[in-house]
Structure formats: structure tokens, C-alpha cells
Amino acid sequence: MDSYIDICVLPMPELADAHILNTVYSKLHLQLAALKTGGIGVSFPEVDEKKHSLGQCIRVHGSKNELEALMATRWMLRLHDYASAGSISSTPTGVQHRVVRRVQVKSSPERLRRRLMKRQSVSEEEARQRIPDTIAQKTKLPYISVQSASTGQRFKLFISHGALQPAPSTGTFSAYGLSGKASIPWF
């Protein structure tokens, strides 16, 4: 990950910054899904987990060639009024790293029951016994509201920025630019 691009939300009085960030990230996700590289990761340099905010900037990490290929698709063409992309820059040397990953929260027992009934052909009563209301988890992690490229469903994508580490860890990134193993440079 020798390069990065910062994509920042432009202030719009009529639209919430979080709404614009959701839109930009959703478009980025669609393009990452189409490219299928696995070598492009994202982070949110302004993240504030205490305020449950990802900030107003998405940092896209990768090799210079991968980032050039991403930007050559002109995926931001219709977003220029809402967000600006900086130029491809070299990652600073001597920085720390961290894993930025998706956290799946079991927040809806009802949804889990419907899924169980559909997949295992169990009755509603049996599903209620297997999945009680107490299974619901609450989280204070920041999230982005996205639409899945594969299913078309909207959902909250909870994002955790892991602990700082002195050396990078390798792996691949999902179409969301997140990974449970691979780290991104943090600066």
C-alpha cells in the first residue's frame, strides 16, 4: 500500500454530511465490487468512535496502479458537487498500521428468526425458542448505511478501526475495502 487518495465530503447546507458520505461510500463499494482486485482498502482518518462518527473523509489505500485503475473508471463523475477526491499521493514512511474491519451485529432477532425459518424450514414457534429477544446486541460503533451490490438490500455497515500496530499485516480486502486481517497504513 504505497499510495492513497483522500475523498472528502463538501459541506452542503441542504444535505447532512453523513448522507453524502453514505452515497460516496456506496458508489465506491460498487466500483470495488466491479474491479475485484482485493488490493484496495479504506479507512476513515477522522473517525471518532466516542462520538460514533466516521468523519467526513474516506481514505482509499492501495498500489499506485490499482488506484489509477480505480480513478480511471470515473466512478465519482456524478459526485463532484458533493465530494472531492485528492490526487494519488505516496503513503508516508514510518507510519503505524491498523486493521479496519466490518463488525456484524446481531441487532434484529426477528430478522434472524425469518432467516432460520427460511433456511431450515422450522416453524415460527421453534424459531422463537431458538432465537430469543435477548440475543439482540447493541453497539456504539460508527456505521455507514449502504446498499449491497449483490443483494440490493440496504443495511448498516458497522466499522471498527483496530489497535495500532507497528508492522503491516497482509491479506485481501472485500468489495467494501475492509478486511479482518489486512492492515492499512494509519496517518
Rank of each mutant, 00 (worst) to 15 (best):
M1Q: 05
Q56W: 08
P168Y: 14
Y25A: 15
I40D: 09
Q120K: 13
F158H: 15
L116D: 08
A16Y: 06
R101M: 04
M12C: 15
N22V: 02
E14Q: 15
A175F: 00
Q137W: 09
H61A: 12
L77Q: 14
V146W: 07
V24F: 13
Q104L: 10
D133V: 04
G94S: 02
K140C: 07
G38T: 08
D2C: 03
V99A: 02
F173E: 11
S174E: 03
V105I: 15
G152F: 06
G171T: 10
C57H: 04
A182P: 03
K106I: 01
H52S: 07
L30V: 08
A182G: 04
S174R: 03
P132A: 08
V42W: 09
G171W: 06
V9E: 06
H161Y: 07
A18S: 13
I58V: 15
K27N: 12
A16C: 05
G39V: 00
V122N: 08
L21A: 03
R102P: 03
T93H: 11
A149S: 15
D133F: 05
A136E: 07
Q31D: 02
F187V: 05
T172S: 13
F44S: 13
M1P: 10
Q153T: 04
R102S: 04
Q104M: 08
R113E: 11
S63H: 07
T91R: 03
P13L: 06
L35K: 14
V95G: 08
Q147R: 15
L77I: 02
R102A: 01
D17L: 01
Q96R: 14
F187T: 07
I135M: 11
Q147W: 01
L32K: 07
M1A: 04
G41H: 03
F187L: 06
P168N: 13
L32W: 08
I184R: 01
K51P: 00
P132D: 10
L28F: 08
Y82N: 00
P11Y: 05
V42F: 02
L79H: 03
T37F: 09
R59H: 14
Q129C: 08
A83D: 07
R128N: 12
Q129W: 05
A18I: 12
R102V: 06
A72K: 15
G55T: 12
G180D: 11
Y25V: 10
R59L: 13
T134K: 12
P168M: 12
P45C: 09
P142Y: 01
K106P: 00
